[in-house]
């Protein structure tokens, strides 16, 4: 049991640093791929049913981080709920959007690309790329590239989110950690009975 805990703990070690680093890298790479002015990742907080700006590169990066809004409003909310990627230009025409953007960041993007971050049947959030240069007309190949990159980002984020949850469970506060500690200190007979129970639980959950 101790060996098992040590192995799992080693596997998830550094998950928090890796998580922040991955989010930062995702928005930086997205911004670089499309030569855009800014990029952001909004993750879904399921408990609060809100979208949260978790990483921002470029314009608006200081003021947007941590900002939240209801999960099914605006373009990002639409992308989250309907799973459909979107590209919109001339956003300055949308007075409601422009006002909100100006109030929160002072930066009003002209164009916006948004793609859902999907893993299996779950949606983790939305990746946005703002103001790509207007030199070439937008092409469907770029749309596909956005989708592919969004897919890669979602898979990586999902892995790290799982590692974070595993670490939280092992960090002593979680029920799993308390259970493991009790089992470790129990007599051999009780350990065997406990493991038997665990196997039954596993079968039940399968």
């Amino acid at each position: 049991m101790t060996d098992l805990r040590a192995a799992v703990a080693a596997g998830v070690l550094g998950a928090e640093d890796g998580y922040r680093g991955l989010l930062r890298a995702t928005v930086e790479v997205a911004r670089a791929i499309f030569h855009a002015k800014a990029s952001s990742v909004l993750l879904l907080d399921e408990e609060a049913d809100e979208l949260v700006f978790e990483a921002v590169a470029g314009e608006g990066s200081d003021s947007l981080l941590g900002q939240r809004f209801p999960s099914s409003t605006g373009v990002a909310g639409w992308v989250l709920v309907t799973r459909q990627p979107l590209v919109i230009d001339d956003l300055t025409q949308d007075t409601r959007f422009s006002r909100t953007a100006a109030e929160s960041t002072g930066y009003v993007p002209r164009g916006l690309m948004a793609v859902p971050l999907l893993v299996d049947d779950r949606v983790l959030g939305v990746l946005e790329v703002l103001d790509r240069p207007n030199v070439e007309p937008f092409s469907l190949a770029e749309m596909d590239l956005l989708g592919l990159f969004g897919n890669q980002a979602a898979i990586a984020l999902d892995l790290l989110q799982r590692a974070r949850r595993a670490r939280a469970a092992l960090d002593g506060e979680g029920e799993l950690a308390r259970f493991a500690a009790r089992l470790e200190n129990a007599s051999e007979e009780r350990q065997a009975a406990g493991l038997e129970l665990l196997r039954a639980l596993e079968q039940l959950l399968d």
Partner: peptide
């Protein structure tokens, strides 16, 4: 047609958009 489509938007606006939508 799904690329650079001129579309109606809120506030009586008209904007350009791309997507299977």
């Amino acid at each position: 047609r799904g690329l650079n489509v001129e579309i109606a938007w809120v506030g009586g606006a008209t904007i350009n958009a791309t997507g299977n939508s």
